[in-house]
Design a protein around this nucleic acid. Sequence first.
RNA 1: GGGCGAUUAGCUCAGUCGGUUAGAGCGCCUCUCUGAUAAGGAGGAGGUCCCUGGUUCGAAUCCAGGAUCGCCCA
Length: 1051
Amino acid sequence: MTYPTVPAAPDHIELEHRVLRLWESERTFERLRAQNAGGAPFSFIDGPITANNPMGVHHAWGRSLKDLIQRHRAMKGHELRYQNGFDCQGLWVEVEVEKALGLNSKREIEEYGLDRFARACRDRVAEYSAVQTRQSIRLGQWMDWDRSYYTMTDPNIAYIWRFLKECHDRGMLYRGNRPMVWCPRCGTSLSQHELIDSYRDRTHPTLHVRFPFVDDPEQAVVVWTTTPWTLPANVAAAVDPEAEYAAVRTSQGIDWVMATRVEDLFGESADVVRTAPGAELVGRAYRGPFDALEAQAEVEHRVVAWDMVSDDEGTGVVHIAPGCGAEDFELGREEGLAVLVPVDEAGVFTADYGFLAGQATVDAADGIREHLAGEGVLVRSGTIDHRFPVCWRCGTDLIFRVVEEWFISADPVRQAMIDAAATVEWIPEQYGKRMEDWLRNMGDWCISRKRYWGLPLPFYRAPDGSMTVIGSIEELRERAVDPLDGLEELHRPWIDGIRIHTDDGQVAERVTEVGDCWLDAGIVPFSTLGWDRGSHVEGGYAAGAGEGLTAADLPDQAYWEKWFPADWISEMREQIRLWFYAQLFMSVVLVGRAPYRAVLGYEKLHDETGRAMHKSWGNAIWFDDAVEEMGADVMRWLYALQTPSQNMNFGYGPANEVRRRLLTLWNSYAFFVRYAEIDGFAPTWSDLAGRPPSATPLDRWVVARVEEAVRECDAALDGYWTPTYARAVEALVEDVSAWYIRGSRARFWRSGADADKDAAFRTLWWALAQISRLIAPAMPFLAEELWQGIVRGHADGAPDSVHLAGWPVVAEPDQGALQSMRLAQTAISLGRAARAQGSRKLRQPLREAVVATPDAQARAAVEGLADEIARELNVKAVRIADAVDELLDVEVVPNFRALGPKLGKDIPAVQAALKAGDYARDGDDVVVLGHRLGPDEVELRTRPREGFAVADEGGLAVAVDTELDEALEDEGLARELIHFIQGRRKDSGLEVADRIRLTVAGDERLRRVVERHGEEIAAETLCTALDVGEAIDGAPFEADGCSGAVRLEPA
RNA sequence: GGGCGAUUAGCUCAGUCGGUUAGAGCGCCUCUCUGAUAAGGAGGAGGUCCCUGGUUCGAAUCCAGGAUCGCCCA
């Protein structure tokens, strides 16, 4: 079988599409699963991706890591589940559907019809889950795409019901009146989760307002607010009782503010008429700015004490509206203040707010300012630029509103969750601390949303106020008062029509709220694995809204026991407070332990300059563009190289760098294929199970080097740390290319066949095949291309795909070979430096290089690789010498690592004595200041003497003899001529193996060189007839002061 | 205010258990090699390892305090 034609550089895009077709047609993934069935389970649980939009390159990061680890484990023979998940419910889906339908409020949704709206949401999930599936396949991710789970299905919902009932039974579920962060556009509260990254730069109106005292209206406290719309709900003004306040005379009267704020507010020349501690102001009644409103009718305003008043900004007197702010609400509870909630769900003032009724909070500022000015209490108005939270989905400024929501108490499970989290391996480690910090501080979980497309909370309230929580579909069926015929799925509006009867015979209706979508995702380790189910139902997951979308089974308890907890999960860091948290919460409640053993988190994806990606900034990169431009392998290699705990700078620039680095591997592959084809080399499959035959020290070295790298890679991936793996691969590829191939080229060129050539081929093939397996988890396409190119069909018995070939199993690497080569590499690089110092081009052969080291072991090691060193340095001979030589001075340096524990405080003195030469050598030992130091305890360093072309590093020094004689010069000229002819061959389009005829003309010296070195010239240039002629019309040749001409013809 | 990180070459980043001469890639300069060639190699310029103090024979690394940046909480 012939080898493929390998282009100069890979076309990643074309290659990847070709490999995708190959996998598809050969059902490679299905075969892998069959091959691993029954293997030790490796349980990965996929965090559901919101099936709402096409996936982005930040999703591709996580998916690449998931795929990388799963492929590695699969290569090691583990059985995996490969279940992908889609997050299907919640505000994010609703908002996109609203946009698509042109709806812009809850009222419009209700007018549109909840049934049609639910269908539209379901359709959007169907559409984008399909898009994301297609994209993920393109990325090379192997999952069981037909059996993805969908969080909107009835089974998922029913499992959450079960969880909620459990919480209710334990008394953890309650309905609370709480100030919530509220989005007036979406008409819903936001949980703490949803405030992540929600602060934006905003400009808002500010007002300074007087609150005149009832008993002395000339005097007033002055407050400052950045939310004018909350002033109509004002009930109190807070001061710090400990702080000093000052009364300042102004044109409007006498204004009380905190003393430290006077200068900022009234200038240096402020007329302070009096000062007093805040405590003196506490209790004074004042006239509110909106007393005339119906809503304010019953309110008595007064100054209250509060220790949270700051003097950073404002006036040191704080406007308090308990219905409009979290801290205000808390203070209001302590002080027994009235709670006024001035706006409705849509952020519009209610009827009892007079002229403001019907206005939205954002539009009310002007009217409020005018009203205050008219009342004579406006001190000044302005604007402020500050960070302000906005709705993370629609960008609307958020407000605080006191609303009723459903909560699960955190305290009953807090400690159990902390304990469970401590059993988990968090990667990077500090994410565990973050989780613990979050758990210690978490508030109760607000689980309700006043929306439509989401988990229907199974809470049924009877006329007497008692509550029944439904825990399963069966229970709903048993208790239903209304016929279930119309209940096509567990969603609004259909579920809203079903009333139930309670244990005591009342008829109860469902509350209208839906659930937090993190309930949907958090239940997954139970709902998808069949926890506490008696039987396995094929395709059972496809119920409700998921019908037609998935073929996932509904497994049973035995299955759950096999796969729970997950061995590993991975998502971006913010999921600590979201999915990692929700899962942990639900798992601790249901089974009392953590649902995962190891968690890999990763940071954020930015553009290549380090800025966050934003559609509106024009720096966002679309996955579909990126994958078809840089290629999936390049993208995946970027992700693999990235340190997860650092933000990633992603873009085409870094991608090009990586693509260029990957060329080294490609070139190595191309090199092998070129010569394997010429020689008809047939590899031996069984070589991969052990070691190939070796003929040279270099062969033994590269084998050891591959074995070493396989172990490094394996350990890194076992620990889920991909950058160590990726760097180890790059270093290996570099070594194979720069040292093994470059050093072995001549063995491949040579015509004929012998044991040495066979060893070279088999060794290089072995190395490349192992590398193909090593990169397979990260770059599945490139790995497959290599495998198809040089393994499959060439080695009898080889698997059809690299992904069916398993992870390399290698012997303990030969440390001696590795160590020797490291020394030789140092010697070679020193020799080159020495040549450069002596101004001798590498093409000019030189007589001798001297490698000197006082270390006997090192001398032996270098001796074994003397041929390699001679070849690399283009010298006739390598002489190994000890350092007691005219080349070098020797210095003895302590080996601190070894001597530190032994000598302790004596080290500086010993160091100084050694440096001063104040020591004696006794065999391999060094005696200094009464200490006898063995060879492992000191290092002998060398320094070149003046006047030699010498370079040194560590304990090695290399000198080259730069003297030339006629023979060496002629040989150099022959090399020049060969180089020139090779260039002509290439220019005239000859194939590597084509034979030629040569005629060379030139001066006397050139003719002499051709005669003396004709054989070598002919061999190197594949010349069948070399003639020396006179004055021919060939290509002019000039080198080293000689001139001539060369004519070249195909033979 | 509390918590978690980060700070290393012009840029992007590695740096294991504390070991005395801190590395890579990219970029720049000089040179070089070449039938793997849109590559490769050698050399150079470029570093107060954020600062201060401490522990230690020895600190980029450990400890304390501070600065700046990022994230999380209040």
